[in-house]
Simulated assay, not measured.
Amino acid sequence: MDPIVAQIHALAKVADEEGRLNIIKELRQVQVELQSPKDSLMEIVGSGLVNAMLRVGADLGLFTLLAKNKGPLKVEEIASSTNASPQLLERILRYLGATSVIKESAANEYTATMLTHVLADPKGEAMIYHGFDTHGPVVQAMPDFFAENGYQDITDNTHTPFQKAHNTKLTSFDWLVQQPKHFENLQKVMTSLQGSEWTNEFALLDDEVQKIPSSAPQAFESPFFVDVGGGHGHQCRELGKKYPSLLGRMVLQDLPEAVGKLSPIEGVEIKAYDFFQPQPVTGAKLYYLRRIMHDWPDKEAAAILRNTAAAMNSDSRILIDDTVIPDTGANWQSTLADLAMMAFGGKERTEAQWHSLAKSAGLHVEQIHTYVASTYTAIVVLALE
């Protein structure tokens, strides 16, 4: 068995992202084929316990405690630091060890794994709380919601499993704004999903940046880059590092609750903005929306695009950083994401659906720059008709 495991590790070390996911896919299939029906049923029934125990672990500070400690800790030491009963901890830790969230290094002794460190990070901890407190009840509400509504598609973000789960008439975002703790967790989760990979080998961006004057921006200049719904400004920070000429030519926009308390970002103008209102920044070269459009049904998504289109010049472009699902053979990550977004009224879209959405807003798809082929993550470039 050890030589086989070593071979898999060796393959993973030299694999690209698509290759890595293919290895995982094959291993999942092997697991399914090797499991007995009893094994499979036990795994399905017990899946909810994982999220519950992650939440308990975060509440107790277990992951932070283990991650900070260089060596293993006895159950009694963990109990002393958390004020939890050793008897209760023993049972919880044993389960977390069995599921590889932490490592059982000896009898009643545990240490951190790579996953433990991920969960101990503030972004990882926020993911735990967002997954359990905000999204967990929605998942629980989905079966009854679908049955009550005759298993019809969700097209209205005020009538989704979210409203049923949280007993509200508000959209998920309006509700989150009124729940500061949950809203902050979401912002941290979004930050953890940020990255600048989309700029790699993206000729449109590189070509336009090359045209920027070497002099400082003038008062009459329109901004080059507007990050619409950009949260805490990760994308602007990354772009400023990669393209210093953009400093002073970028605008970060999001709701007041997201940007109101942000510290200044060098070279970035921070503005409170609701993208369901007219876009106040006119004539920018690029309007960038990352993980925004999949949050909304077609009607609302088209409204966001129309507000942006009204502010564009003929040489302006909208960059939608999102997923383009293939017509067949979509992987589990993208199909899971689609179901997760559906529960809030949103959707992941195919190429044909992106074309249809753009047309409904008076735009057209000019190109699609796929930058992570394994997860279908791409920049959908929109131009005025």
Rank of each mutant, 00 (worst) to 15 (best):
F145K: 00
E109S: 15
A302D: 04
E300P: 02
D39S: 13
A352P: 01
L96S: 04
Q35K: 07
S356Y: 05
M127I: 10
Q31F: 08
A219L: 14
Q35H: 11
L170V: 01
I379F: 02
P326F: 07
A52Y: 10
A52F: 09
V75Q: 08
M341T: 00
A358P: 02
I102P: 08
A258R: 00
G61M: 00
I24Q: 11
L21I: 08
P213E: 13
A12Y: 14
D322K: 02
G248I: 13
L384F: 02
D2T: 13
Q152V: 10
A310W: 08
G329L: 04
A15I: 11
D59R: 12
F224R: 03
T323E: 01
K359V: 10
F146D: 07
L11E: 11
K285A: 12
L11T: 10
D156F: 09
R349S: 04
T350L: 04
L363W: 00
Q210L: 14
D227N: 12
R291G: 08
Y273H: 15
Y371N: 04
G150Q: 11
G362E: 04
Q152N: 14
F132T: 03
L21F: 11
R290S: 10
P122A: 08
V209I: 14
T113W: 05
G46N: 15
E208R: 15
S47H: 11
T282F: 00
P213V: 14
T134Y: 01
D227H: 04
L170R: 08
H166V: 03
A284T: 07
G136F: 05
G267K: 07
P217A: 14
A84H: 05
L336H: 10
I24G: 07
